[in-house]
């Protein structure tokens, strides 16, 4: 582990009008770890992710307070928010195959960044699709519509697209809810490999998934961060808050 955390969050709060989505969250995400976030619906998990890449910018209802430092730099000081977002890849709960070809889906981010060289784009597309374990299935139909792939393929396409930005941080928001178990396992294997290169935040509603993947885990509940710890401790019962144990053992949520 490097000394400086990838992401330092201090006293983060998120409000939508009068509604408090998240309050008083402070945590660090270390370089090259998989940081799991578990918790029931309405815990503020998705809002948390949205605040990290400044998706509040075009949502006037969403108010973010506190400090978020990415590589030691307060995210609000990034004059060019698009540059920040290019360093942070996002995978959404439902696969979003944009209505363009498979190739164009993956080439979109480099193109947005100004890459025009065809050979370079070809190489990026192949590399990202391979890393997302999708290349073998789509290499013969890169020209077909991305939105016509199956759900599991689309989700891997989304991951390939997120990787095409060469992100330093990859955020996955309940990526497996629309994906079959076999594909989920394949994606999980991909994530374990990716950990070598990028830092990953994994929001999941599957407690066991967090156990399989996450080095450390945070438990969110009703807008609060109840507990942060080594993932294994969550499952061996070494937790500070009884609510964490109840949730992990499936007694509520």
């Amino acid at each position: 582990m490097s000394a400086d955390p990838k992401l330092e969050i201090r006293d983060l709060s998120i409000r939508y009008g009068d509604h408090v989505a998240l309050e008083g969250v402070s945590l660090d995400v270390r370089e090259n770890e998989i940081f799991g976030i578990i918790g029931p619906a309405n815990a503020g998990k998705t809002s948390f992710l949205k605040s990290l890449n400044r998706m509040d910018m075009f949502n006037p209802a969403m108010k973010v307070g506190g400090e978020i430092r990415f590589n030691g730099e307060e995210t609000r000081n990034w004059a060019n928010v698009y540059e920040l977002r290019r360093r942070i890849g996002v995978v959404f709960p439902l696969p979003v195959g944009l209505p363009m070809t498979v190739y164009d889906n993956v080439a979109l981010a480099p193109r947005l960044a100004g890459v025009k060289n065809k050979a370079e784009l070809d190489a990026t597309v192949q590399r990202c699709l391979e890393r997302a374990a999708l290349w073998d299935e789509v290499k013969d139909r890169l020209d077909s519509l991305g939105s016509l792939l199956s759900g599991g393929q689309q989700q891997r396409l989304t991951i390939a697209r997120a990787l095409s930005q060469d992100p330093e941080l990859l955020m996955l928001d309940e990526f497996s809810i629309a994906v079959d178990p076999v594909t989920t396992m394949r994606i999980e294997d991909v994530l374990k490999e990716l950990k070598e290169e990028v830092t990953i935040i994994l929001v999941t509603n599957l407690v066991q998934q967090a156990r399989r993947l996450a080095d450390r885990t945070a438990f969110f509940l009703e807008g609060q961060c109840v507990e942060i710890g080594d993932t294994e401790d969550f499952f061996t019962g070494e937790v500070a808050d009884p609510r964490t144990r109840d949730y992990v053992e499936g007694r509520f949520g």
């Binding site: 890449n53 998706m55 977002r85 996002v90 979003v96 944009l98 209505p99 979109l108 981010a109 697209r161």
Partner: peptide, 16 residues
């Protein structure tokens, strides 16, 4: 909207 969100999350400007 998820198309817009996906593109925004990739660092696309509003015109992009």
């Amino acid at each position: 909207d998820r198309y817009r969100e996906a593109a925004e999350a990739m660092g696309a400007t509003r015109w992009q």
